[in-house]
């Protein structure tokens, strides 16, 4: 799968494998030339609903840590402000999973089906888009992500509501 990573973005390069989040693992972590992180989760037949939930949880988990990762590994050239996107690979996706994913709008993960292929002595697999367009969705996610609202929760785990911040106080810290 590492060799096929560029199917999801021409400049993607894998920077880590089997990265453990809060409860589950991202099979591959990749970054593109803009510093945007992509998580790739691979499942087997029937795993697709779980895979979607895991992807959302992992994106949230990674987003909260991107700034730290960028500091720990500056050579990775991560952009801590870029939204984390996910690519889900499964043999097939249930219509409900597709609908659920589509409802996420700009944050929707890319869905792609894979099939194992046997060609003589060589084994391989091929990939086809399950969401409208793997490439188009990937490109759209990059662009639309810039308009994603700031996460509601800070690194401390507190929200703006917990901190009782007024509009005037918030304005003081607008970039």
């Amino acid at each position: 799968m590492r060799d096929r990573i560029r199917d999801f973005g021409p400049s993607l390069r894998v920077i880590a494998e089997d990265v453990m989040g809060e409860r589950s693992t991202a099979d591959l972590v990749a970054v593109d030339d803009r510093g945007q992180v992509t998580l790739i989760l691979i499942g087997e037949a029937g795993d697709d609903p779980t895979l979607l939930t895991r992807a959302l949880a992992l994106c949230s988990w990674v987003s909260a840590r991107l700034a730290d990762w960028a500091q720990i590994g500056p050579e990775l050239r991560l952009d801590p402000d870029a939204p984390v996107r996910a690519v889900l690979l499964c043999p097939d996706f249930d219509p409900e999973t597709r609908s659920a994913a589509a409802s996420l709008g700009a944050q929707a993960p890319v869905l792609a089906c894979y099939r194992e292929a046997h060609n003589g002595a060589q084994d391989g697999f091929w990939i086809e888009a399950a969401s409208p367009s793997v490439g188009a969705t990937a490109r759209a996610a990059t662009g639309l992500g810039r308009h994603t609202p700031e996460p509601a929760v800070f690194r401390s785990g507190l929200s703006e509501a917990d901190l009782h911040l007024t509009a005037e106080e918030r304005r003081d810290f607008e970039s």
Partner: peptide, 17 residues
């Protein structure tokens, strides 16, 4: 705190608490 605007807002909020 880092100098990041959002982190400064968070730090201000915690100081306020």
């Amino acid at each position: 705190t880092s100098g990041d605007a959002r982190e400064l807002l968070e730090t201000y909020g915690i100081a306020k608490l």
